[in-house]
Nucleic acid binder design. Structure first.
Lengths: 147, 147
DNA sequence: CTGTTCTCCTATTATAATGATATGAAAGAT
DNA sequence: ATCTTTCATATCATTATAATAGGAGAACAG
């Protein structure tokens, strides 16, 4: 039950966007370089984040991506939902109709508890928390990357 | 981030084994019929549960599988680990050496929190809880299946 | 109005994981 | 002996993930 690379890379990219917010948009190329990813792959991820209303984009020279809201207002739950889908570990939890034994299933309550617990963690963490960790990191300010 | 069918089917099978514990072993065929699964597939699952020390098995006539301990002593965390692997949503959480940026990763703490939260839920639920739900279910006693 | 920088859209491919089936050997009970 | 069951291994189909590729179209600078 691992998370996808999309969520991993996407979350880190958003953490970086938190650093520049609200100063300037950052091109996908720049974000990709920081993480050592291909620009094309990160573009996909950013596209999904845009579709979810988490980032805005600007085309052309000195364009790029920027957070659509302040970092404090973007929860990891929203990011998870955008890049990973539902937090429910089984489909029946969100679509009761797909299981004929829904009401009598002895295991479903466990999966519901899991979902709620995951939602709790993700809902109480924001991009601001991630960005703050970059700021207080040992390497912060020592890299070649300029804000 | 869904759980596998192995865990879903396996958990239900264990809940059923809780009903008969400690009276008699139940053959895979019987457990498979209850869930409408192929015997062969469930055999794989039960085999993994046996390797994890969660069930015991007995060959030959009137053989089958039975819980290795009392239902109260088998947590869903043990079952998850046996059928799904680690509860860590990313590998680096359990193997720091695979990531060069381990100490400075702004997202890792989130994944660690997620793991702990999942462990909490799974660790506080036992097979006894599942079995109890079968016992108090509307259909219990009305099926053709005899204990 | 031209070139550059960038997002954006769609298609394709590779790889791995899951889900499942199949065959038959080995062990135990009667 | 024979029936029932676990056990071991191999194979296959399907899906999801991860990633790459090519190029169209917007914004802006000169």
């Amino acid at each position: 039950m691992e998370i996808s690379t999309k969520l991993r890379y996407g979350a880190r990219a958003l953490a970086e966007l938190g650093l520049t917010y609200p100063k300037r948009p950052v091109p996908a190329r720049e974000l990709a370089e920081q993480q050592g990813l291909s620009v094309k792959y990160l573009e996909h991820i950013l596209s999904a984040l845009k579709a979810a209303g988490i980032v805005n984009s600007k085309r052309g020279m000195s364009g790029g991506y920027e957070l659509a809201r302040s970092p404090e207002q973007i929860t990891m739950k929203a990011v998870f939902n955008a890049l990973e889908g539902s937090t429910a570990p089984v489909k029946c939890v969100e679509n009761p109709e797909i299981c004929s034994q829904y009401d009598d299933c002895p295991t479903r309550p466990v999966w519901e508890e899991l979902r709620d617990s995951i939602d709790g963690v993700l809902g109480s963490t924001t991009i601001a928390d991630l960005t703050e960790r970059i700021r207080s990191s040992a390497k912060y300010g020592k890299t070649t990357y300029q804000i």
